[in-house]
C-alpha cells in the first residue's frame, strides 16, 4: 500500500497529494508520470508527477476530477492509501538526458495551462537547480482555478500569469502572451515546452510553428498498463504511430496529430459519463430517463 502523507485541495476540482512511494521517488525524473490504482476494483489512472522528495521517499501528484474514479479519489485524506502506485513511466524530458552545457545555452519558455501547471513545475524546478532561468507562462480559466502560483514563482525566471476572464493578472489565452513576448517584446526563445489541455497545446503549436519556435508537448491519452502493452495511448507523430506511455509522453508538438488525439480521448466518454451518474445517483440510479414510476 502507498500511504497518502498529505492531501490538499488546490482549487475547484484540483487536488494535490504527497504519496509514500520510495522506489518511484528514488528514480523519477521531470517529464515522467505514474499510474495509480485506488483499490481492488479501481481503474489504473495515469497521473502527472508534480514533485518528488528522494530522501523522504515521497512523490507529489496533482489531479483534476474528470470522472467517477477521480471524484472518489478527491475524497481521500491523509492516512488513506493507494493499493497501487507504479512508476516512473514514460521518458524523462529531453533536457534531462542532454549535456547540461548545451541545455544552458538555450532559452526556454514553459507554457502551462490549468492542471498542466503541475507537470511543468518539476521541469522549471530542475532548470533552477541547474542554474537556468526559464520564463514561464501560466494560464487558467479564472483566478480561482490558478494553481501552484507561489512554488512556480520561486523557481521561474519571469512568470507571466494570464486568466481567460481577466480576473487575475493578464486577460486572455496563453497564446496571446506568447505572441506578446515574442512579437511585441522581441524576446528570443530556443525551445517552448507547452503542457495543458490538448486544445491549448494544439493552438500553442499552431502559433509557435508560425514563429518558428520548436515546441515540446506532453500528451495524456487514454491508457491502461502504461508500459507499452495495450496500445490504447497510440497517436500519430510525424505520420508515425507512437505509444505515449513508452515513446513519450513528450513529443515534438509540431509533428503531433492533435485532431486525431482529441477524437481518441472521447473513446470512453460515454462509459465514464454513465459511471459518474451511477455514483451521483447512488441507489436511486436506474437509467435516469425520468419516466419511471
Amino acid at each position: 500500500m502507498y500511504k497518502i502523507l498529505k492531501a490538499e485541495r488546490l482549487a475547484e476540482k484540483i487536488y494535490l497529494m504527497d504519496v509514500e512511494a520510495p522506489r518511484v521517488a528514488k528514480s523519477c525524473q521531470p517529464g515522467e508520470f505514474v499510474i495509480v490504482k485506488m483499490d481492488e476494483k479501481g481503474e489504473r489512472i495515469p497521473l502527472t508527477i508534480c514533485d518528488f522528495d528522494r530522501k523522504a521517499g515521497t512523490v507529489t501528484i496533482v489531479f483534476q476530477i474528470v470522472g467517477a474514479s477521480t471524484q472518489r479519489m478527491a475524497e481521500w485524506k491523509e492516512g488513506d492509501a493507494f493499493q497501487d502506485f507504479v512508476g516512473p513511466l514514460g521518458q524523462p524530458s529531453e533536457f534531462v538526458k542532454e549535456d547540461i552545457e548545451e541545455v544552458k545555452k538555450r532559452k526556454y519558455l514553459f507554457v502551462a495551462g490549468g492542471v498542466g501547471t503541475a507537470p511543468v513545475y518539476p521541469q522549471v524546478k530542475w532548470m533552477r537547480e541547474h542554474g537556468i532561468e526559464a520564463d514561464v507562462i501560466v494560464g487558467a480559466k479564472t483566478k480561482e482555478l490558478l494553481i501552484l502560483e507561489e512554488p512556480m514563482r520561486e523557481v521561474a525566471g519571469n512568470l507571466y500569469i494570464t486568466t481567460d476572464d481577466g480576473s487575475y493578472m493578464n486577460k486572455g489565452m496563453v497564446t496571446e502572451v506568447i505572441k506578446d513576448l515574442v512579437v511585441n517584446q522581441g524576446k528570443k526563445y530556443d525551445v517552448c515546452v507547452a503542457i495543458g489541455p490538448m486544445i491549448m497545446m494544439k493552438f500553442v503549436c499552431l502559433l509557435t510553428k508560425e514563429l518558428n519556435l520548436p515546441t515540446i508537448v506532453s500528451m495524456n491519452p487514454v491508457m491502461v498498463d502504461g508500459t507499452g502493452m495495450c496500445g490504447a495511448c497510440r497517436l500519430s507523430v510525424g505520420g508515425q504511430v507512437k505509444f505515449a506511455c513508452v515513446d513519450g509522453p513528450e513529443f515534438d508538438g509540431h509533428q503531433v496529430n492533435f485532431d486525431e488525439a482529441m477524437k481518441r480521448q472521447q473513446i470512453y466518454k460515454t462509459e465514464e459519463g454513465r459511471a459518474m451518474l451511477r455514483m451521483q445517483e447512488g441507489d436511486t440510479h436506474h437509467g435516469g430517463c425520468g419516466n419511471c414510476q
Binding site: E43, D225, C230, R234, S236
Partner: peptide, 19 residues
C-alpha cells in the same frame, strides 16, 4: 487503424481479464 473502436487484442483482453 487509429480510429476510435480499433483496439489491440492486448488492450481488449487486459481490460476484460486484468481489470
Amino acid at each position: 487503424e487509429n480510429a476510435n473502436g480499433v483496439f489491440s487484442a492486448n488492450e481488449y483482453l487486459t481490460r476484460s481479464n486484468l481489470m
